[in-house]
Each structure stands twice: as structure tokens, then as C-alpha cells.
Deep mutational scan, measured.
Amino acid sequence: CHSECLGNCSQPDDPTKCVACRNFYLDGRCVETCPPPYYHFQDWRCVNFSFCQDLHHKCKNSRRQGCHQYVIHNNKCIPECPSGYTMNSSNLLCTPCLGPCPKVCHLLEGEKTIDSVTSAQELRGCTVINGSLIINIRGGNNLAAELEANLGLIEEISGYLKIRRSYALVSLSFFRKLRLIRGETLEIGNYSFYALDNQNLRQLWDWSKHNLTITQGKLFFHYNPKLCLSEIHKMEEVSGTKGRQERNDIALKTNGDQASCENELLKFSYIRTSFDKILLRWEPYWPPDFRDLLGFMLFYKEAPYQNVTEFDGQDACGSNSWTVVDIDPPLRSNDPKSQNHPGWLMRGLKPWTQYAIFVKTLVTFSDERRTYGAKSDIIYVQTDATNPSVPLDPISVSNSSSQIILKWKPPSDPNGNITHYLVFWERQAEDSELFELDYCLKGLKLPSRTWSPPFESEDSQKHNQSEYEDSAGECCSCPKTDSQILKELEESSFRKTFEDYLHNVVFVPRKT
């Protein structure tokens, strides 16, 4: 048989008469490798580009789960590009990614509803959504962080984005990388972005840091009482949809009607710091009717980097990364020049730590249904340095008659930039024990000054392991946590139920 035959053949030295091919099969003959313009397919066939392209389009058009959109890589027609490569849609070739590779997620039936953290986790790592997304989240724990972890990498949506009755959302900033909504599939009414009845939605994105392009379709905003109209108009300008909307697409009466839409800028007039305090004062603000001013709200939190936005980490279910302080308005003076500047002394802060701070007014709604208010920009203030805590785990070892090696770990709280350490030492008198000992005694162990690591005695271990207080009263049991108490109650309830079950099964009433 021919060298490319495997198993047997019907005619000697003829690659077209093989029972099976050793390498690849091409047009009725066995070959060692697939010549151009053919590609290896499933490690035994040679196919042309049209064959591989037909497989790709067949799966793409069917949208069946589990099928493969075949691509070409290293002269092979394979189910998908290997790690580190992405497909070129024009020629199906796998090309190296520039940075992290995109991950295209194809949605069944063309859309997916995100109504819980669990459903959001199914899209973790996706960068391109081939379909439409509907966000409908009523509640949950730590929602802002969970949504950002699972949806934060999405850069492109081919269909539309719909935010509907998501009472738990305060902001859409968890879509931190969303840059493009194509609108290839539109919501009824030709809408590519749809926001309806979101009672706590206050911000779409921080438009000073976020760009969003909507290729096709219109915007729809109705019944978002805490979303200011200025935020919607800003989205029109940034996304390129200005002029597409009709009169009733953006409701003037049901958007922002319960919001404090600040239209003035508060400026800080005085800032002073110490290692654990920050004193702030800002310019006074009074609405047209000074009785509408209820006070100020001061927001602050630790910020290692200057990239904080107002609604980071917030949701309507209680999660809030900001510390909020309510401040009463100052006494009002008739003389504008003698107006008191409101302020606040922030206490209990960490030394040498940068804080993000902003302040906003708290006002009631005027009778004319106009909203007044003022808010400052987010500023960054760093507390002063102070003395560091003591170095940890000092170790001293003498390696000769004239040297001592000293080692330690950095302090747990540096409280500033540590530039150097101060080492103090003092000579001590020799131990009298060394002169009084009889060095001729056998088995004498000389006193040693070398360091030995501390260890816990058996008594201390027994005390720590004991669940009861000892007789001397030195140790006591740790208080039980809520989960331990709940577990004990469940076990007790189970024992009672099981005992009742045994009584009912074992003891049967005697027939009379």
C-alpha cells in the first residue's frame, strides 16, 4: 500500500485506493498535508475557505447554543480562536489581540433580562453583547459592586439597553466600559436606550469621564423622579442622539420631579488639616426662599486615587461607600458681607490618608415646582503625618564578641513616609551569675543571650482551647457569634421535631 494509506488498500502504491488515510483526505486521495488554498479540518480532512465560511455563517444565523462559528488559524479551520487571539470578521482569520481579548457573548432569543446578581454573573467577562440587555433589578445585597464585577467589562451592545423598574439602582456607572450601543435591534418605538419607572436612579454616568455613542435609535425617559433633566440632556449631547427624540420621548413632568437638581456650584473657602482632623468651610448658599434650606450634607471617604465619582458603590438597598454628615444651616444675616460661612470639623480620621470630599445642599421643593440647590466639586484632601507606631517583631542576635545583629519589621501604621529608623542602645553591667558559677561542674549549661522565638506554653494553649472559665478566673470563653447562636437554635429545633416524629412513629394507638 501507499505510504499515506492506513489499515489496508485495494490497489498497491495508489493513494486513492486506501481504506483510511494516515494524515489527511483531499478529493478522494490521501495526502501528507493540505496544500494551499485548503485548510486542515478536524485533523483528517482538507477543506477550502468557502466550506469553513459556510459553517461560520450557519452557526451565526441559527443562534443555536453550542454550535461553533468556525475560524481560520495556522492553516486550520477550527471552532474558535485560541487564547490571546480574536477573529477578523472580513476573512475569519485569528489575529493577536492588542491588550485583553474581546469576548463576544451571543444571547438566546436576542435579549437577556438581568433581574438578579445570579443572572448578571452569566455575563461575567463579556466585552461584546450580541443582542439586547434588559435591566430589571428590584433589590439585593452589595448590588453596585456585584454588577460592576460582572457587567463592568461590557464595551458594546449590538441591540438596545433597557432599564425598567430597577428600584435598587442609583447610577449606571457599573457599566464602566460601555462605549457603544449599535441599535441594530430596537425596542418598540425605535428606541435604543429605554429608561422607565426607576424610582431611585439619580445618575446615568459621570459624563466628564465617560463617552457613549448610540449609532441608531432614540432615547426614552419616563417616570424617573430623581433623575434630573440636565442629566438626560447631557446624554443626548454626548451620545449623538440630540435631535432624534420626539416631543413625548422625554417626559418633562415625570423626570426629576422629586430630585434636588443642583444648578449652582458650592466653593470651599477654608481648608485646614491635622493628622486626624480636617476643618472645612464653604461659601454660604440661600435659595430664593431661605426657609427652603434644610441644611447641608457632607460626604467623605478614603480615596487612594483621584478618580472618585459621587455615586460609586451606591445602591438604593443601603450600600453606600460614603460617610454622610448632616449639618444645620448657619444663622442668616441681613448683611451679605457678614454672612457666616458654614463648615464642619471632621474628626477621627487616619493620618497621612487622602480623602475625597464634597458637600451639597438639602432643600425642600418650592411652590413653583422649581428645584434649587448647590453642590461642590469633589475635592481631595490629605491629612498630615504623625509619629508612626512601633516597629514590629524586633530580633537581636550576637554573632561574635563585638557585634549584635538587630532586625525588625516595619510598623503596622507608618502614618507617613518613613525615611529612617533611630536605634538606641545602652551598655549593661555583666551578670554576677557568670562569676559565681563553678565551671568545672559536669552538665553545666552556660547562660545564653542568643534570641529564641517566643512560644506559647501548654497552660496558655489549654486556656485558649477551654470553653469555660478556669477556677483562677484568668480566662473566659469568647462570646458566641450570631451565626453560632442561630445554628444552635436550628439544631435544637431539629432535635425537638425529630423526637416528636419518633414518638408518633414508635407509639401507635392500640386498636379498641
Rank of each mutant, 00 (worst) to 15 (best):
F175R: 00
F290M: 02
T213R: 13
K242C: 09
N136R: 06
P304S: 09
A259E: 04
I188P: 10
I135L: 06
W408H: 00
G189Q: 01
G131Q: 01
N248R: 02
D393G: 06
L178Q: 01
W344M: 03
G343I: 04
G183K: 01
L153D: 10
W352V: 03
S260P: 12
A120W: 05
T361P: 02
L153I: 13
L298E: 00
G140I: 03
I163R: 01
S230L: 14
Q216K: 01
N307F: 07
R244V: 13
L362Y: 03
L227S: 01
R247S: 08
P391Q: 00
V128C: 09
Y191N: 12
T323Y: 13
S173I: 11
L219N: 15
L345R: 04
A149V: 14
D315T: 13
P329I: 05
K218T: 15
Q339N: 12
L108M: 13
H222W: 08
L294T: 06
D292N: 04
Y380V: 13
S166L: 05
E187Y: 05
K253V: 12
L349Y: 00
L169T: 09
R244G: 14
L279H: 05
D289C: 02
F296R: 00
Q203Y: 12
L294K: 14
T241A: 10
C261T: 02
L204G: 09
K162V: 10
S400M: 10
T383H: 01
E156M: 08
D249W: 14
G348H: 09
S274Q: 05
T361S: 12
R176W: 15
H106S: 12
L212H: 05
N320V: 10
Q403P: 00
E302K: 13
N224T: 06
E146Q: 08
V397R: 09
E236A: 15
V359H: 01
W282Y: 02
N334Y: 08
W286C: 05
T185H: 13
I278H: 00
E187A: 03
C105Q: 00
I278R: 00
K350V: 08
L362P: 01
K226W: 06
Y194Q: 06
P351Y: 13
L186K: 11
A356E: 02
L133C: 04
Q121V: 03
R281A: 10
W352Y: 04
M346G: 11
N130K: 09
T309P: 02
I114M: 11
K234F: 11
V238S: 11
Y194A: 13
S274K: 12
L212N: 01
S269L: 14
W286G: 06
P329T: 10
N320W: 13
T371P: 08
K162I: 07
K103D: 09
T386Q: 08
K234R: 14
E184A: 14
P225H: 06
